[in-house]
Each structure stands twice: as C-alpha cells, then as structure tokens.
C-alpha cells in the first residue's frame, strides 16, 4: 500500500524557495516601507509561511474535485514534469501571484493586529499636522510608503527569483538529486 515514492524533491524545493523568498522579501520590505530589519523579517516569514500553507490547502481541495482527465494531467505534471498546455501553467502562475499578494497583505495586517504593532502609515499621517504647508501635504499623498505596493514589489521580486530558479532547473540536464 505505501510505496517508497516520497515527495522529497517537492520538500527540498519548497524549503529552498521559502528561505529565498523570505530573504528577498524582507530586504524589499525593509527598503520600501522604511521599517526595521526584525519587523521586516517577521512580516516576510509569516506572510510566506501562511501563503504556502493556504496554497497547499487550495491544492488538496482542488485536486480532489478535478474531473478524472484533468486529474491525470496533474499527476502527469507532478510525476513527469510534462504538461500539455504551457498556457494553462502561465495562467495558473499569474493567478497564484495575485492570490499570494492579496493573502500576504492580509496576513501582514492581521500580524499587526495580533502583535499590536502600530501601522507606520498612521504614525506618519499624524506628523504633518504640525506644519500645514503645501510641501507636507504633498508628501503625505505621494511619498507615504504604501504597504500594499511594498508587498506587491516584494512578491514580484521573490516570484522572479523563484521563476529564474525553475527556469534554470528546466534548462539544465536532469541530475539525480
């Protein structure tokens, strides 16, 4: 019943991708949002772990409800790394990108609530009240770090790095790792 076919490669790649994504995203968030190193690592680690777990849950529910022919295609992709329509793969990757972005923004908001971190934007909005000059007004509007945009940049950076690694793996001749 239980065979020695183990998802070891999936685990290996996932660990590599998560560590890479946390490293890249924490740097981007730190630079873009002007927050401390510790907070940015907390944000990146929590957001990435949460989106990975949610992603697996979506995968398991979707897999069990697929029609048999699609399921066979999915199994073929996982076992042989071959897919009939690359367009489907690109579309899926794009929707995963959007999905993880929304999920990460939401996770970071929840994390702020749970940890009692005050949002940097609320701190900075209160500041310009002191000087009500034109320059201050403009600054609040355009130069205020926008969290969602920061997360979007971070997500884009980590997805690019992961896509690059996947591309390298596809191009290189197969080795038995």
């Amino acid at each position: 019943m239980f065979t020695d076919v183990l998802p070891l490669r999936a685990i290996l790649f996932q660990l590599l991708f998560i560590v890479l994504a946390i490293a890249i995203e924490s740097i981007v968030l730190q630079k873009y949002l002007g927050i401390g190193q510790k907070t940015s690592i907390q944000y990146a680690a929590t957001a990435n772990l949460a989106s990975t777990v949610v992603g697996w849950l979506v995968f398991f529910t979707a897999e069990s409800s697929l029609p048999p022919s699609w399921r066979v295609q999915l199994i073929g992709y996982i076992f042989y790394d071959r897919i009939n329509s690359p367009a489907l793969l690109i579309g899926l990757a794009f929707s995963i990108f959007i999905g993880t972005f929304l999920l990460k923004v939401q996770t970071i908001n929840w994390l702020d609530q749970i940890l009692g971190i005050r949002k940097p934007s609320t701190v900075e909005v209160q500041d310009p009240i002191k000087f009500r000059g034109r320059t201050a007004h403009r600054q609040t509007f355009s130069e205020l770090p926008n969290r969602a945009l920061g997360v979007l940049w971070a997500n884009a950076a980590s997805f690019s790095a992961i896509t690059f690694l996947i591309a390298v793996r596809t191009i290189l001749p197969p080795t038995n790792y």
Binding site: T3, D4, R9, E63, I75, I78, F79, D81, R169
Partner: peptide, 26 residues
C-alpha cells in the same frame, strides 16, 4: 496523496520519476 495516485494509476511508476520536480523513489 501520491500514494493514492499510485494506487489508482500504478503504471505511472513504469516510466520512472527521474524528471519529476516533486517526487523521488528511494
């Protein structure tokens, strides 16, 4: 999940999983 697939589609093993990015035979 992989074990379920192999129970339902055992012949997948016949071609080997060298190319797979997910699974490996010990």
């Amino acid at each position: 999940e992989v074990q379920d697939w192999l129970a339902e589609y055992p012949s997948f093993r016949a071609q080997g999983f060298e190319q797979s990015a997910f699974v490996r035979e010990l």
